[in-house]
Amino acid sequence: MVAEDGRRLAVVVREQKDVIVERWVRAAAESLRGRVTAAELDREFREVYAVLLPLVGNDGRRIDDERYIEIRSVLAEMSRTRARSGYTPSETASSVFALKRVVFELIGDDADAELFRELIDFSSLLDALGLVTFETFARAREEIITEQSEQLLELTTPVVKLWEGVLAVPLVGTLDSARTQVVMEKLLESLVETGAEHAIIDITGVLAVDTQVAQHLLKTAFAARLMGAECTISGIRPQIAQTIVALGIEFGDITTKASLADALRHALRREGVEVVAAAGKGR
Score class of each variant (00 low, 15 high):
V2A: 12
G6Y: 02
R8K: 14
V11Y: 09
V12W: 03
Q16K: 15
V19A: 15
R26I: 07
A27F: 02
R33P: 00
R33M: 04
V36E: 01
E40F: 07
L41A: 02
D42P: 03
R46G: 01
A50G: 03
V51D: 02
D59T: 06
R61I: 00
I63G: 01
D65V: 00
R67W: 10
R67L: 11
E70S: 08
I71P: 01
S73V: 00
S73M: 04
S73T: 09
V74D: 06
L75Y: 09
A76D: 05
S79M: 03
R82M: 14
R84T: 10
T88W: 04
P89D: 07
P89S: 07
T92F: 05
A93L: 11
S94G: 14
F97C: 04
A98V: 05
E105W: 00
L106D: 01
A111M: 05
E114W: 06
F116C: 06
I120N: 04
F122P: 10
S123C: 04
L125K: 07
R139A: 13
A140I: 12
A140T: 09
I144A: 11
I145R: 14
Q151R: 15
T156G: 10
P158D: 11
V159P: 06
W163K: 01
L167G: 08
V169S: 04
P170A: 08
P170F: 05
V172R: 10
V172S: 07
D176L: 06
T180N: 14
Q181W: 04
V182R: 15
V182E: 14
V183A: 12
M184W: 13
L188K: 06
S190L: 10
E197F: 02
I200A: 07
I203M: 05
L207H: 11
L207Q: 11
A208C: 01
A208S: 12
V209A: 08
T211A: 15
V213Q: 09
Q215T: 12
H216T: 09
L217G: 07
L218T: 10
K219A: 14
T220G: 05
A221C: 12
M227Y: 03
M227S: 03
S234Y: 01
G235D: 03
P238T: 00
Q239H: 08
Q239M: 06
I240Q: 07
L247R: 11
R270P: 06
G272R: 02
V275Q: 04
V276T: 12
A279S: 05
A279Q: 06
G282D: 08
